[in-house]
Structure formats: structure tokens, C-alpha cells
Computed example of a mutant assay.
Amino acid sequence: MTRRAVLITGGTLNLGFEAARTIALGHYPGSKEDPDKYLLVLLSRTDKNNAADAINKQAAAAGKPHRAVFRRLDLADLQGVRQFGRTWAEGVAAGNTQDFPPIQTLLLNAGLQFPAELVTVPSSGLEATFAVNHVGHALLFHLLAPYLDAAVSPTGARVVVTSSGTHDPAQKSGVPDAVYTSAEDLAHPPPDMVHVPGRQRYASSKLANVLWTYALARHLQQAGKLAGRDTQKYPGITANAFDPGLIPGTGLLRSGTGVERFLWNNVLPHIMPVLRMAYSTPNVNTAETSGRNLARLAVGPGGSGGEDSTDGIVQGISGKYYEMRRPIPTSKDSYVEAKQEDLWDWTIRYLAKGNAPEEARFREFR
């Protein structure tokens, strides 16, 4: 079986690292029926803990054929994202299948939260939360879409976007309600949105993740590139979103105050049962637990039961939002097609910047 690549943004720490480790060790549901060998590409600004080496040592000790590599990627740096895309394209063109194999899955997982009122990216002028959590990921997808080689894999190629329950006001997460007026307002906040709290910007970016995922599934279908349930007969790409739940101790609050970071890293991880009761949800998890759930969506070959059931089939399924191991409804705003299309069109136009051939390629997934 041809080795397949699984690219994971935020892959060196916390949820992304645990998803990669789970795949490498074969600890996801259905792993025994999965014939693929994986190259786990851990994308992040740094790999201070030598995450790829740690995964390789554990995989080798377990006798698994998978391997991991670290490659630097800063999602806020759109020119850097473009360079990564060019490097991948050049590697494929050169026939270097060892380092640039067909892509099985894009796990668009990395996320940042800035408690300050407004942080912008100097190189682009974009609001930083939206830039990292959405724009950089969207560019990465469009650059790599031609290399999502569904025909090689028995389970089809996949895109999984890590979102958050904070996108849905009905979940009462304690974060200010997400607001989507337009993509342009999130990218370049007008004067009346400059003082929006940073955590509301985060929630709004997570709503954008869901809107974009739904739009992606629809446009893949319109282009004839959406995978069907029988991925052997109808190869293509699936697109879904994932809510990892509240995971205390991760790097999400690294831009928070000293008190916030202390509570997040040293107190909350030890009171998860209390947090589940306080938020009236079981979706308060360790990174290991959520990593297994994310790995299932990334490479799990199927499932048992209907697609809407816990641990149901995931092969050939698109347009779902998974909480833990079950798809659930999302916020009212997330289903508004006009908002989905506003984000979809703005994103492609912004990324192409008037380059008509590139805009056409992005719209046609080529």
C-alpha cells in the first residue's frame, strides 16, 4: 500500500500531537482494518519538544510502519504558507514520494486566542485570530487540494477542521457570543468592532470554521469532487468539522494573563468532573481523549451504525460537525447559506488578490 500523508497544523503539541501519536500507534477505532502507512507531517512554528522524534520512537517500539516529520509553518505568515505549498508541489513534481506522498488527510487544527481587544498581523493587516484560525488554513487547503489524492486511498481523502462549541451561543460556554456580519468585518474590524473582546473574536473565528466547512462540502459536491459512501466507486474528498471540547492545560491561553494561565494549566486539568457539571456537558476532555476522536475522523476506515450515531460510519461522510464521536447540530447562524457564501467568496478573492488564474484554480480545486 502506498504511504499516505496526514498533515496536522498545530501538530507538535496537545490535541494535534495526540492525534498524530494515536495514528502512529494505531490506537484509533478501526485501525486494524486500515491498510495504509502514514507519513505524519507535524506543522507548527516550532517543535521545541521534538514531537516528531518522540512519535517515531514510540511507533518503532510498537512495531508500527508509520513515521512523523516536523515542518515549520506559521499560519499567520501567508507568504510562508505559499512557500510551503510550492515546496510540496515541487516535491511531488520531482517524484519524491518518500517526503511528499499523496495526501490522505488535512487536519486544520491549530488555533489561537488573544484576550487583548485587537491584535493584527503586521505583514497582512488581518485581525490575528481570524488570520490564524481561518485564513491561513484556507490558503493551505487551496494550495494542497490538488494533492489530496482520493483515488489512492480506500477511505477517500479528508479535510477535518477543528472548531469549538464556543461558536454556538446555545451551548452557553461562558465565552461572548460569536458574531458574523461579514468576513471583511472579521478580517478588518470596522471602528464599532475594534473593542470587541478577544474571546468573542475567537468564538467568531470558530463560527467561521463551521461556515467554511459547510461551504467547502457544498462546493466540492458542485465540482464533482465530494466522496460518496462507497469511496472505491465514488472517490473524492470529505469535509467535516470537529469540536474537541474544553481541554484545560493546552496552549490555547498562552496569550492570557498570568492568573489565567496558572488556572488553565495547574488547576482546571485536575477538576474536570466539576467542569463537566458546571458546563452541563461531558465534552471536557484530556488532549489524549480528544486526540483519539480526531484521529478517528482523520483516518478511521469506517464505523458501526448509522452516520449520525456515536461511533457511526465516517467513511464518505461530509458536512458534519462532530462533538466527541457523534455528529451534532451547530448554531443557527452556521446554517445560513448566505453567510457561508460570503465567507467562501471573500476568502478566495482575498487569497487570489486579483490573480484571475489562481482564483479559478482555487474555485475549481486544481
Rank of each mutant, 00 (worst) to 15 (best):
L226K: 07
E33F: 09
F130S: 00
K320H: 13
T129D: 01
A208F: 06
N56C: 12
V152R: 08
A178N: 10
G258C: 10
R82F: 01
E18C: 13
V81L: 05
A54V: 12
E90T: 14
D192I: 06
Y38Q: 10
G30Q: 11
Y147R: 04
S31Y: 05
R199W: 10
P146T: 10
R349Y: 00
N209W: 06
R218N: 11
A19R: 02
V6Y: 01
R4D: 02
K332T: 14
L351A: 00
P176F: 08
D311T: 07
S334M: 12
L106W: 03
W88A: 06
S255F: 13
A76D: 13
N50V: 03
K225S: 09
V210I: 15
G302P: 06
G85W: 03
R229P: 04
V132M: 02
E288N: 05
A24D: 08
N133D: 14
H137Y: 10
G80C: 11
K206C: 07
V267A: 11
N49A: 14
Y279F: 15
Y28V: 06
Y234R: 12
G26K: 05
R82W: 04
R366C: 10
L246G: 02
Y322I: 08
T162H: 02
G249V: 03
A59E: 08
Y322E: 09
L25D: 08
E184K: 14
E260T: 15
A227R: 02
N265S: 14
A208L: 04
P197I: 08
D192N: 15
E358I: 00
G125W: 03
T310W: 06
A227C: 10
D177S: 14
A360H: 12
A278F: 02
P190S: 12
A352R: 00
A62V: 11
A241P: 10
A128Y: 00
P146L: 10
V69G: 06
N240W: 06
H137Q: 15
P35Q: 12
E260Q: 15
P65Q: 11
R276L: 00
H66N: 14
K48N: 13
F130E: 00
V336F: 04
T155N: 06
A356T: 14
D311C: 07
R229T: 13
E127Q: 12
L216F: 09
W344F: 06
T281E: 00
D47N: 15
L144R: 03
G305L: 07
M272Y: 01
L275I: 01
H66P: 11
Q340L: 07
Q83K: 14
T289F: 04
V196N: 01
A52E: 09
E364M: 06
Q58R: 10
F84S: 07
D74S: 12
A203T: 09
E117R: 14
P244W: 04
D342F: 03
V81M: 05
L186E: 11
S280E: 00
D74F: 04
G251T: 13
L294C: 05
A145E: 01
T120Y: 01
V259F: 15
T12V: 07
V69N: 03
S163G: 08
L148W: 03
A93F: 04
Y180S: 08
G91H: 10
A227D: 12
K48Q: 15
H137G: 03
A356L: 13
G236Q: 08
D168A: 11
L294Q: 12
T166S: 14
Y202A: 08
S123P: 01
F141R: 01
